[in-house]
Amino acid sequence: MELIEVKNCYKIYKNGVTALADINLSIKKGDFVFIIGSTASGKSSLIKMLYREEKPTKGNVYVGGINVAKLRNRKVYKLRRKIGIVFQDFKLLPKLNVYENVAFPLESMGIKKKDIKPRVLEALERVGLKEKVHSFPNQLSGGECQRVCIARAIINKPKVLICDEPTGNLDPKTSKEIMKLIDYINKEMHTTVIMATHDRDIVNRMKKRVLLIDHGILKGDFAKGSYKENEAI
């Protein structure tokens, strides 16, 4: 079975809005996939479904063998421990420093302090923030905050890294660096990356598989490098 499989998936919100209609897709282990589409196209709903922030109204979503659609609320944490999530707004805890923010998932899992330390330092080294261990989020730049968020996402060595517009709040130069980092994680750690974005530059430059979503429908599935800018987003 593929690492991620979405079968006949519908998402209809309570107010009657159909966010997704009959989505079918599969993603292999180690893939790097962009999900693109304009605002309100349904790409966020799709991404949120993968980490079970939303439940599909109909259909099945398999992530690493778990049927997310049938996952009970109290079991959701099991899924979340297998995936890393990177957010547009970083979602760091302002009262914790960089080290504590990255250690947060491990601490809440009840892992020993002495086992947490090497893992946190390793993750921070990967994202290049080892010297900012004691800084607080408000002392960091946007790019650095995003690196902390990525470090926290990879601390559990997840199979999948889900990125919801990770460069949305960053300038082009910083975005480039962050993309380099995510690409590095994909290649070095063999982590599957699924990234929602509407940054054309990044999509064009990276030459990865692209899924185009428009009005809740999967309009196109472009294999690595075959997506061209003129096929309007």
């Binding site: 922030e53 109290r74 944490y77 979340r80 809440s108 899992m109 009840g110 559990n156």
Partner: peptide, 11 residues
């Protein structure tokens, strides 16, 4: 954030 990073409900 706790929920997103996989903290169990009981915790």
């Amino acid at each position: 954030i706790m929920r997103l990073v996989g903290t169990s409900n009981i915790v």
